[in-house]
């Protein structure tokens, strides 16, 4: 029980870290056509996430891998049920990854246009679809007793699912705009700051709508009603979102970005806590739901994996923190001069 519960929350934590880190990469990619007025701007934007995006993406691989290792049945049913959506995400991620690497290697406006389009789609599509997928999980997925999905891609695009998608997209774009406010200077920075200001009320509006909508579309609040102490997570998340605006107004973009990071982690945990112990609830019949208790690996595997995670995740956090520290200075046009830059 304890082991499975621990893994349930670790699972949530890994997804939360993925959204917190790769989230701003998605945001910057989505903003590329809007904030990048010329080639130099665009290159600065890409190079502002250049040193870290690849390591950030591995949180996804780990979140996926841990789902496979700790909850194999969930991995199997989740990934096959969400087949089309996941394939779209995968193709988007493929295009995003190569775009960064390929874009700057040929001096041709047409070549760069192609990869800019790929960077944009490769960032915006996963941001939206991860939100759609998780919102659908929150409301329940039409799976039968054998874990077979009774729907299609359009089933996922229901109003609540779309609301979740838009919320994720906005949170990530805001996160990316704040990252650029920290990492750039001059006109580009001013545009990023203005964007953050403009996005904030919209994000708040959608976030409130999502919280209210969740009351009607999902059973997430059942756990909160049973254990009101968890409402603190929602309070903290909302406070962090308010903090974004506060720090933005003070011109303290670093703190605003941290507040935005907390908002994203909090938003993820809002859902994760509400879901417990379900990882993949069935909307057909609650007894078909896959939970931490009926879909987990053996105690031996869970124990070994707990050891692996306990040793390696802190190490990963240390060297990733070192890498962020190493590249903490602003990305400027000088950084574009040397040849390995994107």
């Amino acid at each position: 029980m304890t082991l499975q519960t621990t893994w349930f929350f670790l699972w949530g934590l890994l997804w939360a870290i993925f959204f917190m880190t790769d989230g701003f990469d998605f945001g910057v990619g989505t903003l590329l056509p809007f904030l990048g007025k010329n080639d130099d701007d665009k290159r600065i934007m890409i190079n502002a996430i250049g040193p870290v995006w690849d390591g950030n993406e591995v949180w996804l691989i780990t979140a996926g891998g841990v789902t496979f290792a700790a909850f194999p049945k969930v991995y199997a049913v989740m990934f096959s049920s969400l087949y089309s959506a996941l394939m779209l995400i995968l193709f988007a991620l493929i295009l995003r990854g190569v775009s960064f690497e390929f874009r700057g290697k040929v001096e041709s406006a047409a070549w760069r246009k192609v990869w800019d389009a790929c960077s944009f789609a490769g960032s915006a599509v996963p941001a939206l679809l991860f939100g759609v997928a998780f919102a659908n999980i929150f409301e329940g997925i039409p799976i039968d007793q054998n874990g077979i999905y009774q729907g299609n891609l359009l089933t996922l695009l229901n109003p609540y699912g779309l609301c979740g998608g838009v919320l994720f997209l906005l949170l990530f774009v805001q996160h990316g705009a704040l990252w650029l406010s920290v990492k750039t200077e001059g006109d580009l920075q001013q545009r990023a700051i203005r964007t953050s200001h403009r996005l904030w009320p919209v994000t708040v509006g959608i976030a409130v709508a999502f919280l209210v909508y969740s009351k009607f579309a999902t059973r997430l609040y059942d756990n909160y009603m049973a254990h009101p102490v968890f409402f603190l997570v929602i309070v903290l998340t909302v406070a962090a979102l308010l903090g974004v605006r506060l720090f933005l107004g003070q011109g303290n973009y670093g703190k605003a970005w941290i507040a935005s990071a907390i908002t994203i982690v909090g938003a993820t945990f809002f859902g994760v806590i509400g879901l417990f112990p379900n990882l993949f609830p069935s909307s057909i019949n609650p007894s078909f739901s896959l939970s931490a208790f009926n879909a987990s690996s053996s105690p031996l595997t869970l124990t070994i994996m707990l050891g692996v995670v306990a040793v390696f995740i802190p190490i990963v956090l240390i060297y990733q923190a070192w890498s962020y520290h190493l590249f903490k200075s602003k990305t400027t046009s000088e950084d574009l001069d040397y040849e390995e830059a994107y």
Binding site: V58, I61, T62, G64, G65, V66, F68, A69, A70, P72, Y75, S297, T301, I304, M305, V308, V309, F312, I313, V316
Partner: peptide, 11 residues
């Protein structure tokens, strides 16, 4: 099998 892939990612 899943745990081996997860170890690959983390380690």
């Amino acid at each position: 099998f899943g745990s081996l892939l997860a170890i690959e990612a983390t380690a």
